[in-house]
Write a protein that binds this DNA or RNA. Structure first.
Lengths: 340, 340
DNA sequence: ATTGCATGAGAGACCGGTCTCATTCAATAG
DNA sequence: CTATTGAATGAGACCGGTCTCTCATGCAAT
């Protein structure tokens, strides 16, 4: 019996007689045969794997999005390889390179920067489909699923402004030189730029003067967030409301607010992006921006998979609707003399 | 110039003259060359990848453990492929098979069952090192890193018993036939069996009669957990204290307790495994069992990597120390007539 | 009996690397 | 001046699959 015949029964293709099949199977069993996927995908050119590069697995936002991706992938018979960029462009590049090297069939990336996207163009050029999750890249014409960050930031800010707040802070993990916000041009993470843009627009519309000074960057870790929050809250003109860019940031801010003996929402109002599971059990529960995170992941995976399965169409940009869940963390600003 | 020469410069091995090297590099650049990792690892037999199979990525416990693994892996130059078993033995088997097929260099698994471990023996037989995370398997002699679940469960239960509780519940995600606890023999997740064993031991030592009836299984999802919690709290002899097997479960229980108009700890005391980030911001903050999760992941990865790098030694079973962080969710049981 | 055709099996190329061995050539030693 | 040595390169096997082609066989139709 030839190698080819054995391959036919083991690979499950072509035609083989039952007698031979049984023989091969018995031999395979005896030899404890395991197919070498590497060899297989080397010749077929397909690996059945989707590579996913996200900013931070530990952020429940990405955790949930990844589950959306995984579910969609599994349903279509694909497997997922996950890589973490830690929101660092170098790590992101390395991850992309690794995944391309492993010959994944397609990639889903949460680009941490819009400046340097050469590696993403490379994916495209290498013939593998790429899809973007949560962050759009104007210059890159590929399937993209996001939420309308600008709009939702505007709505959240409006809630705060309408409650009477005039000193509203926006705290994000995105960093820039000297951790100091100057203008939108510094912000290379598209979703965050959109948000800050929306935030500032509403602030200005509400007649707030120089809202930029309350935009704070660099809340990249719990420690960093604490430091940012402490700086913010110890200023003489401390903000009376804070908009947090993700639930990890909100949690630390919430802790610091309490730790300083301040109350939510009496002293400081708080709204955060992402309806993390804990936001409903605090006292008070937190008002949140409820992004359709699972759907975000699922949709982007489905878009990619359809392409992998041969669909050709112009690239699509999906923008999913987002809601605000009003709970108890927003109130009017405190009316102490110092703050009038 | 031959294929071999090109391979030498691209692969970074052997000797090549500078002129030729430059030429090859230029050509590679022009042709947009990307090494095919598949081909490479097919001949070398090494992939530089560690496969990790965990129960549930969305559980922050595993999220943190995976970061420990990733950090250790990166430091040693390995990459990580992550697969989710959803605590389902079939998915776990499929994941293991996939990873072996992809020729990972070694595997780290959180076995969801101790009954059916044929696929884990297979790993061993296929010559790849295997290491176990968080859950030991008595029958499988491989590197294992766990915490002393029995001991820590005893300590937590003792806190509750010493506070005067006599009706203490243990709620876990692990399920069994008819969702009904009968005896330890049903529980095939080693860590949970240990915990329940410790829990029951202390209950009995405290003179509590039939503590088994408050052991509740099947809190596998938020919905399931809610249903379990509601059943538990609507019983006439409802427990006055609850020990939750993970932070996801504790969160849902906490919500249900509140929803029913009960208070923590006045009506129900609560302790949970895993010092999840939100446990310190609730009112009251939750008393938790603080497992060294990151270290768990890091240690198991290091053990595996040392083996991958050629170290031969008898398999090691590491048990990491665990602490209890007492916060505000434990008090004496309520003293209403109905409860005397 | 001859032709036609489907079916099952074998031979060997190929994927893109690594690696061993052979070959060439120049520099140095005897 | 020849022998020795070592560096640089080339040729080709190999890893473990897939796939295309060829060929042998058997059965039905002419």
């Amino acid at each position: 019996m030839s190698k080819a015949t054995a391959a036919r029964v083991l690979g499950g293709y072509g035609v083989v007689s039952d007698t031979i099949r049984a023989g091969v199977l018995a031999a395979a069993m005896a030899l404890d045969y395991r197919p070498n996927e590497l060899a297989r995908s080397m010749t077929t050119g397909k690996s059945g794997i989707i590579g996913v590069v996200v900013g931070d697995i530990e952020n429940p936002f990405f955790g949930l999005a990844v589950r959306g991706i995984s579910d969609a992938a599994r349903a279509a018979g694909f497997n997922v390889i996950l890589a973490n960029s830690g929101e660092k462009i170098e790590a992101e590049k390395a991850a992309v390179k690794l995944l391309i090297g492993k010959r994944v069939d397609g990639l889903i990336v949460t680009p941490s920067e819009s400046r340097d996207i050469s590696h993403l163009r490379d994916i495209h050029r290498s013939g593998r489909p790429l899809a973007l999750l949560d962050r759009a890249l104007p210059d890159l014409d590929v399937d993209t699923v996001t939420v309308d960050d600008r709009d939702i930031a505007m709505r959240a800010t409006r809630i705060l402004a309408n409650a009477g707040h005039r000193r509203i802070a926006y705290v994000t993990a995105v960093d820039a030189q000297r951790h100091q916000y100057r203008d939108l041009g510094q912000i290379y993470t598209s979703s965050v730029r959109e948000r800050i843009d929306g935030f500032l627009t509403v602030c200005r519309d509400a007649g707030i003067d120089g809202p930029e000074r309350y935009v704070r960057l660099g809340a990249t870790s719990p420690e960093q967030t604490r430091s940012v929050a402490e700086t913010l809250l110890s200023e003489t003109d401390r903000p009376t409301a804070i908009l947090a860019s993700d639930s990890l940031i909100a949690l630390e801010i919430f802790k610091i607010i309490r730790q300083r003996g301040l109350r939510v929402p009496d002293d400081v109002s708080l709204i955060t992006f992402h309806d993390a599971d804990w936001t409903s059990v605090t006292t008070p529960p937190i008002t949140v921006i409820d992004q359709p995170v699972y759907a975000l992941g699922k949709s982007v995976a489905e878009l990619l998979i359809r392409r992998l399965e041969g669909e050709t169409r112009p690239s699509e940009r999906l923008v999913l609707p987002t809601a605000i869940i009003e709970r108890g963390s927003v109130g009017p600003p405190p009316t102490t003399k110092a703050n009038v």
